[in-house]
């Protein structure tokens, strides 16, 4: 299901989230590892953007950098992250802490490890409520119980006192959603929210996220390796490879005319219900490149079945296709691969 875009509001001129030329590098023993490389995108209020890529493509690091959760002496960040007009990159920790949980929240991949195993789930919800909202203990408790009910946990009164270990994986992910949404954030960063769950539960959780998002007019960055997950639930899709954006377009546009061979390969590796059962999944050959020693050309070239000489010599820039909202980084985009010479590009921005 797709949800209509949020009603226009007076502030819509300023996007909720604006990420510009964001890079994140880690100093490692083998040199500088550029996990996120000059990524730019915008996200409007109540909208959803999907960030797709294999593991190691930098999508989790991107989400955590946007949130500001990556810190430490071995992390280098450049560029800009503006949230409601406020610059987050380089903002003091105290400023970020007042946003975290209150205006922006995060859901983590593994509900088995992301909940504190020795704390009752009710406490894990009220903790956030009492920190950010000026409410007393009993009010917080009542709010937490109603949140548990909203995320579809049966008998929430009783579950309030449960420990995470007493719940199933799907239930734990619902608890995590309840924690993230406790203070009604404007932005939710969901990092592979359904990867650890089985397929039927996956769909339930995604539907739940979608409807809660719609009710609350909350924007979401949905990070996943599964194009199938983002296909019907996002407004725009960003495809990442080796820390870079390699294709970005409105969701329907991306599926109708994808330009990047990597996107095509990702789609081919997504299981489909329409395939006969036991169909072999096409895996993408080879492995993601070593980020400390990228090849000179297109980082995907060694694995790309359309790669030509030019691809191995020079990295393609991110350019616009026929429509300004469709960007891709490929010398020989799909559907235009006729002549021996690369098609001419108009360099974006």
């Amino acid at each position: 299901m797709t949800y209509p875009p949020a009603a226009s509001d007076p502030q819509s001129a300023v996007p909720l989230l604006e990420v510009t030329e964001l890079s994140t590098s880690f100093r490692t023993g083998r040199g500088l590892l550029k996990a996120v490389d000059r990524v730019s995108f915008r996200l409007g209020r109540g909208r959803t953007i999907g960030v797709v890529g294999e593991s190691g493509s930098g999508k989790t690091v991107l989400a955590r950098t946007v949130m500001g959760l990556l810190a430490g002496s071995n992390v280098e960040k450049t560029g800009s992250v503006r949230f409601e007009g406020q610059e987050l990159l380089g903002a003091p920790n105290s400023e970020l802490r007042s946003l975290w949980g209150a205006r922006m929240a995060m859901i983590f991949q593994d509900p088995m490890t992301a909940l504190n195993p020795v704390m009752r789930i009710g406490r894990q919800i009220t903790e956030s409520l009492r920190l950010h909202l000026d409410i007393d203990r009993s009010e917080a408790r009542a709010t937490a119980v109603s949140l548990l009910a909203q995320v579809g946990i049966p008998s929430p009164e009783e579950r309030y006192g449960s420990f995470p270990g007493e719940l199933s994986g799907g239930m734990r992910q619902r608890v995590m959603i309840a924690i993230a949404l406790a203070c009604s954030p404007r932005l939710l960063l969901a990092d592979e929210p359904t990867t650890g769950l089985d397929v039927t539960v996956q769909a339930q959780i995604l539907d739940l996220l979608g409807s809660l998002q719609y009710e609350r007019n909350m924007a979401m960055v949905l990070v996943t390796h599964d194009l199938g997950v983002v296909a019907t639930r996002t407004d725009d899709i960003v495809v990442m490879y080796a820390g870079r954006i390699v294709e970005m377009a409105p969701t329907s546009r991306l599926f109708s005319s994808m330009a990047m061979p990597y996107t095509e390969a990702l789609l081919a590796s997504t299981p489909r219900l329409s395939n006969p059962s036991h169909t072999r999944l096409a895996a993408i050959e080879g492995r993601p490149p070593d980020l400390t020693a990228l090849p000179p050309g297109c980082p995907f070239a060694p694995r790309c079945r359309y790669a030509q000489d030019l691809c191995r010599r020079a990295a393609p820039p991110l350019v616009t296709a026929e429509r300004p909202d469709h960007l891709y980084a490929c010398w020989y985009p799909l559907g235009a691969r006729t002549g021996p010479a690369p098609v001419s590009h108009s360099v974006s921005s």
Binding site: L69, R97, L99, W100, G101, M106, D110, A114, S128, L131
Partner: peptide
Amino acid sequence: DFILMARSKGL
């Protein structure tokens, strides 16, 4: 992870 989760709550 649950420590990162706790940080992301703003604690």
